[in-house]
Computed example of a mutant assay.
Amino acid sequence: MPSITLANLSWSTPDGRPLFSSLNLSFGPERAGLVGRNGVGKTTLLKLITGELSPASGTVSVSGSLGVLRQSVQVTLDETIADLFGTRAALATLARAEAGEASAEELANADWMLEARMAE
């Protein structure tokens, strides 16, 4: 089952202002929202979860896959939502399977529930 667990997570800004100290949180497969005033650490927390930043102390454990859709998205003309979620290749495999053009290896490795999860 997918999950995100933060254990004793601590992080401070470069000037030494603590944002998190001994933070313990767990998220299961359900949807969760992160709400707060500007500057309280929402983006920093997401960067710690994705591994973009390293915690000063504590651990971040992620099981399952993690997708992030940024608030400010810069796309090129040929990009789609599938590109933003990193699923273009997997959706192309499903399209080839549907058309009867996928290889046996592609069929064995296809993520058959991808479209349903994306729709959800």
Rank of each mutant, 00 (worst) to 15 (best):
G58S: 02
M118L: 15
S26M: 11
A95C: 05
R96D: 12
T93R: 11
T80A: 08
G33W: 06
L45W: 02
S21V: 06
S3M: 10
V75R: 15
S61E: 11
F27G: 05
F27K: 11
S57W: 00
D15H: 12
N8I: 00
T80F: 04
P55G: 02
V62W: 04
L94D: 01
P55E: 00
P18D: 06
L91I: 03
D15F: 01
A82L: 04
A95H: 12
E120N: 09
G39H: 03
G28T: 15
G16W: 06
S21C: 08
A102D: 08
T44F: 03
G36V: 00
G64L: 04
S10I: 01
A90I: 00
G51M: 07
S57L: 00
A119W: 00
A95G: 09
E115Y: 00
L25I: 12
G51L: 07
S26K: 15
E101K: 13
S103M: 07
A99L: 10
I4L: 13
Q74C: 00
G58N: 03
T44R: 06
E52P: 00
A116K: 09
T44V: 12
L84Q: 14
R88Q: 11
T43S: 15
A82P: 03
T5L: 09
A56E: 11
A108V: 04
G100P: 07
G67W: 04
S26V: 13
F27A: 12
A110V: 08
V60D: 03
G67D: 01
A82V: 03
L6I: 09
A116G: 02
N109L: 09
G100W: 08
L77M: 07
V40I: 15
L9D: 01
T87W: 08
S65K: 14
A99W: 03
S10A: 11
G28C: 05
L45T: 01
T76H: 13
V68D: 00
N8C: 01
E120H: 11
G33L: 05
T87Y: 10
A110E: 08
N8D: 15
A119D: 09
G86L: 04
P14C: 05
A82R: 05
E115V: 11
N109S: 10
E120S: 11
A102R: 04
M118A: 01
L66E: 01
V35E: 08
I4G: 08
A7K: 15
E106T: 06
R88W: 05
R37L: 07
S72L: 06
L48C: 02
N24P: 06
V40P: 12
V75F: 12
E98G: 14
A7T: 15
F85W: 14
G100C: 06
A102S: 10
W112R: 14
S63W: 00
S21W: 07
A102T: 05
S72T: 14
